[in-house]
């Protein structure tokens, strides 16, 4: 993993910590707020939070950040693709959709963001949109009843829009 260098605005982090009273029990919410800003959790932010909440250490914060699937320690792509692999999507062919996306974006062996930073891929458990199975979400928009061909067209369109 290449170490990401993002300039962390400690002033902002402090504001978040303050609004939650530096409370230990609000750690998850605090991390969610920080991730809202950077779209991932920069290492410097984790360390800072660990040092400024009483009863916590950077290691404990790192432990919490790595425990929950929602938190990412790596930057996400401009287009965040979430592929649902819940049961209903799975029996209706989400694996083929997932393989097609990986092939198309050249993502393999634990790599989840494209080299140009345009796309990142995440597999989620269930979006609760089972009647639309297989479903994917790109930047919050649900795409229903996906097929390997359809997803390939969507990615082509997004790539084309970017280059224009």
């Amino acid at each position: 993993m290449t170490k990401c260098t993002v300039k962390v605005d400690f002033e902002k982090i402090n504001e978040i910590l303050k609004s939650y009273n530096y409370e230990k029990s609000s750690l998850i919410t605090i991390l969610q707020k920080v991730q809202e800003i950077y779209k991932f959790l920069p290492e410097d932010a984790i360390t800072y939070i660990g040092e400024h909440i009483e009863g916590l250490s950077p290691a404990t914060v790192y432990g919490v950040a790595t425990f929950y699937a929602q938190f990412s320690l790596e930057p996400k792509g401009k287009y965040e693709i979430k592929v649902c692999d819940g049961t209903a999507c799975h029996v209706r062919g989400s694996s083929a959709v997932l393989t097609a996306i990986k092939e198309k974006l050249n993502l393999e062996n634990g790599k989840y963001t494209t080299s140009d930073g345009l796309f990142s891929l995440e597999i989620v458990n269930c979006l609760g949109a089972c009647a639309l199975a297989p479903a994917i979400v790109i930047n919050g928009k649900v795409h229903a009843k996906m097929t390997p061909e359809a997803v390939s067209v969507i990615i082509d369109t997004l790539t084309k829009n970017e280059s224009e």
Binding site: E23, K24, S25, S26, L27, I28, T29, L31, Q32, G63, V64, F67, Y68, A69, Q70, F71, V124, N125
Partner: peptide, 26 residues
């Protein structure tokens, strides 16, 4: 309201409580 952060095990009562308290949901 407490927002979860994506861990299936937090549906388990004692893990859910750990998560509300801001810890790893174990």
């Amino acid at each position: 309201i407490k927002e979860g952060a994506g861990a299936f095990v937090c549906g388990e009562s004692s893990a859910l409580i750990a998560s509300i308290e801001g810890e790893r949901g174990m």
